[in-house]
Design a protein around this nucleic acid. Sequence first.
DNA 1: GAGTTCACG
DNA 2: GACGTACGTGAACTCA
Length: 930
Amino acid sequence: MTFGPGCHLHLIDGSAFIFRAYHALPPLTRKSDGLPIGAVSGFCNMLQRYVEGNTGSDVTHLAVIFDKGSHTFRNDMYDLYKANRDAMPEDLRPQIPLTRKATEAFNIACKEQAGYEADDIIATLARMAREAGGRCTIISSDKDLMQLVGGGVEMFDAMKNNLIDSEGVEAKFGVGPERVVDVQALAGDSVDNVPGAPGIGVKTAALLINEYGDLETLLDRASEIKQPKRRETLINHREQIELSKRLVTLDDQTPLDYGLDDLEVRDPDPEQLLAFLAEMEFRTLTRRIADTLGAEAPTIEDTPVISADAPEAEAVPFDAAAYEWVKTSEALQLWIDRIYARGYVAVDTETTGLNEMIADLVGVSLCVDAGKACYIPLTHKGGDADDLFGDDTLAEGQMDFATCLSMLKPMLEDPSIVKIGQNMKYDAKIFANEGIAVHPIDDTMLMSYAMNAGLHNHGMDALSDRYLSHTPIPIKPLLGTGKSARTFDRVPVEEAVPYAAEDADITLRLWQYFKPRLHRSQVTKVYETLECPLVPVLAQMERTGVQVDRDTLSRMSNAFAQKMAGLEDEIHKLAGRSFNVGSPKQLGEILFDEMGIEGGKKGKTGAYATGAEVLEDLATEHDLPARVLDWRQLSKLKSTYTDALQDHINPHTGRVHTSYSIAGANTGRLASTDPNLQNIPIRSEEGRRIREAFVAPEGKVLVALDYSQIELRILAHMADIAELKQAFKDGLDIHALTASEMFNVPLDEMTPDVRRQAKAINFGVIYGISGFGLARNLRIPRAEAQGFIDRYFERFPGIKDYMTETKAFAKEHLYVETLFGRKINTPEIAAKGPRAGFAQRAAINAPIQGTAADVIRRAMIRMPDAIADLPAKMLLQVHDELLFEVDADAADALTAVAKEVMENAANPAVHLDVPLIVDAGRGANWAEAH
DNA sequence: GAGTTCACG
DNA sequence: GACGTACGTGAACTCA
């Protein structure tokens, strides 16, 4: 039927339905896997009620209109548009795509358009209906849609069962529909963050508009207004008011690739609808709709709840032969279509190496259904693999590189498609090299980390073995080892396809397994606020890198080599023969067997211990161990830092690019690898000079900001120690205060030595103090150390309580938690013997170290937006420190902004009873910045 | 590849 | 009563 006079179009505001449904219902979850489905259930019920209520009515055309993504042309106009909207609740997000599926299951047209709000599409369709001479009813009560009423267009509030026509609009706004935008422009809207005119509400706005006719006239004649305040407001805020009008005016010219005729009412297909409802496990609704349609209700199994830690066999077996080799753009397009139909895709990249800054993209794998995956080879080399000179011609059956990426790019960047990866930071960086910003993402490694930190590592092989009972195809045989090793682009495509596609398949299956379990483990918030958002931030920092001066390092290496050679001669003379100074075994034999020094202790492997502590004790009596200590320090500095760092300078960027592992440390800390830039020397004067090689480019400076005593502050808060909290509020020297309290020394009579001992105790407390450990650290008798600890607990009984309670919590739950809800599993807490001690101390430390890690993560996640307008880059994180590079003249501004972000990073999720204080430094290099 | 040592917070 | 012990990391080196 062609849409025209006599036709009646109904447009349902999908988002309104979803939010109503979400808030009206308790947080229901699907029984079989815990997927949240409360909003979907409510949505389906509302659709069903709507359909029942309109059977036999004059509706001829029907569509449900949804918002797509959150960025629209209005954000380009005004970046604060809808900026004060709360983030979508975490248990609602996964339900959004399901509401689309629900609409389709009801066989109702389901429409959305990137860059436009649902309201714009509604405006456009309503205009088209009006122009065609038909009627249109908008099922919504959103006041923003009231401007559309009139000329055959009406609104219907499905909840209140109440029709809104021109008179209804006038009752609400005091003006007719055609002047609604003028009133809204003046009154503004706090919900959408439309500024409007300050101090003018709907009442006043309507009064003014009715007096002057329309907004433009009003603004032109604003000077005639008698009330001085109103007059000033309108004159001073003219621009803002005009912007507001543009924001509230709906765009009824949205480009649509369909017409009204495509929205004709269709009967639902009982089979399709009931299948969907059964899949959602809506028992009542399935039965009710089956009755209405006169069909048989499918049975919904009462699936038993699967225990989270029991590996379950997946229904679909792994079949390498089923994986597809994508050779053409037609084949790829089919995959992209499939991805859009689903709303998510597992992605994996194959490259020529593990270093994302150097590695080249070789191919991409995709998977949307367990067992159905593909590999798109792009730069595999053909020819004879044994040919020493290589053959750089491309292998057969590969798509053009640029064509493939230009097809993938819109999908990878589409806000409505979730890209699932295992360690997505790696793949995101590879794609970033090709100018593709992958977003949004899910990461199975991070899901596992959020749930299982402390239980096992989170590499794909381990996860697949454990949760899918499947051992992935090993990469080793493909790449070879040693001399015969080759990069992935030299692997024949026939061999690459099963390996590469399987990785995407496994990733998708892991995602299907983990996703519902996140909710059950109560770590969705941690995953969504502390893990995922960190991925792009770290990717950016890693890609930026830090400038390191090769000459400085090289000069230091030479100096160290000379000194070491001198020391080595001396050591050999003292020993009476030459030996490998770098061999602890040989050194032990020299010291304790040949030289006959007493007190050599052998460890469990039968070797003498020659660690720094042992040598330091011997150094008071002998020269040789003292020289060895000096030699070892230089050797460490040279091999680990001045030599190795030079090899890490990227030839293209001239900078050093570390890689942060997000899921490495159980406590939530990051770990830096290849190279580790979190252990650059600072404690010794000689080592500290290595930091002089970390420099700012010409015209810029490095700014270092570090949290002062963050772990002690967190302990004071968590254990609720009034004296410590007050001391931090008063900005006192916390170690001196501890010493004063413990040893009854007034603060103004404090000696450095007493303070040093108190400092050691404070640190010990964070680590799960023991008499033995403190004794060793302070080099005092064990009994004396125990006496200190006893006195400390007497003075701060809250600390002892905290430790006891934390241990008890760990024993009961087998995990401990940070203030932000991060879980750290402590399975060893139940162990007997010495391992119990380890586990207990780790359990005491983890919430403190982990909370500090969460705090700086939050700061880092907020930082890119906070410094977006400054000529500054965040370069490195060292647990409680962030290092920035900034134009010299913007260093003050950067310091102020970054400090603010860091000091307030806990808010608003957690209110700390102690202030967080950040110290700042700057300079031409990292040594000066401290 | 395990064990030892040592750099950092 | 004896046992071993500060918490969390990564990298380089030796030696089997």
